[in-house]
Amino acid sequence: MPPIYTLHDLQQSYNGRRVLAIDRLDIGRGEVLALVGPSGSGKSTLLRLLNFLEQPSGGALTFDGEPVTPRLALAQRRRVTTVFQRPALLHRSVAANIGYGQTLRGIKPDNDELAAWLDRLGLSHLARQSAPKLSAGEAQRVALARALILRPDVLLLDEPSANLDPYNIGLIERLVAEAHSETGMTVVWVTHDIFQARRVAGRVAFLLEGRLVEVADAAKFFTAPATPQAAAFLRGELVYS
């Protein structure tokens, strides 16, 4: 099956400073890819490019066999969605936040579907509550539901459980795993937590200073990394390219 994303010589620079330069990366349809690397390695930048939120400075990005162009960007963007580290909920009710993406598409949120999601998240009693009043864990669960209810082809996760307690981390991992197995969506998961990457991913891409140093199956990456930088990263050492 052809990959859903193909990145070829993809580059991103801000104010003349190059922050990302990926020679080649294919992301398979339906896979769970963990993006790992130290802070500032370009993981979040790559996610923004994969969600078509930014124009790359150079190189080629194809999505589902089509080159990403500004003309197609909205249609392509609506097949992909990101859950960020900060939930960025709107000043509306919990239910309105979960249905927000559907509203943007002109779809009236289905009350039964909303109720099912709220139940799944353990938030049924908070449906009418103002979203900014939720706890961090509750807010991130709402952010995840807001993305998953859209049934995107690709779910991008930018450290969604970075500041959460073990219960919420487990819940988020379980919800993503269930959605992945139900819909076959592609998941690209940025995480600092190598144990989480090991739990959730089938494949791991290791970024360092904007460059892709190693891409490997998760089992191989965690047991026998091919590069000294990846090995040092897994040992918790400070890594340079």
Binding site: R48, L53, A88, G101, L104, A147, L150
Partner: peptide, 28 residues
């Protein structure tokens, strides 16, 4: 407004006009 909100709104599929309206509502 937190820049993540703008990114999040666009990531959820908002057009330029929908993004503007949502942000104005957020800044009400």
């Amino acid at each position: 407004i937190d820049p993540t909100v703008k990114l999040q709104v666009r990531s959820l599929g908002a057009t330029r006009a929908q993004t503007a309206w949502t942000l104005i509502r957020e800044a009400r």
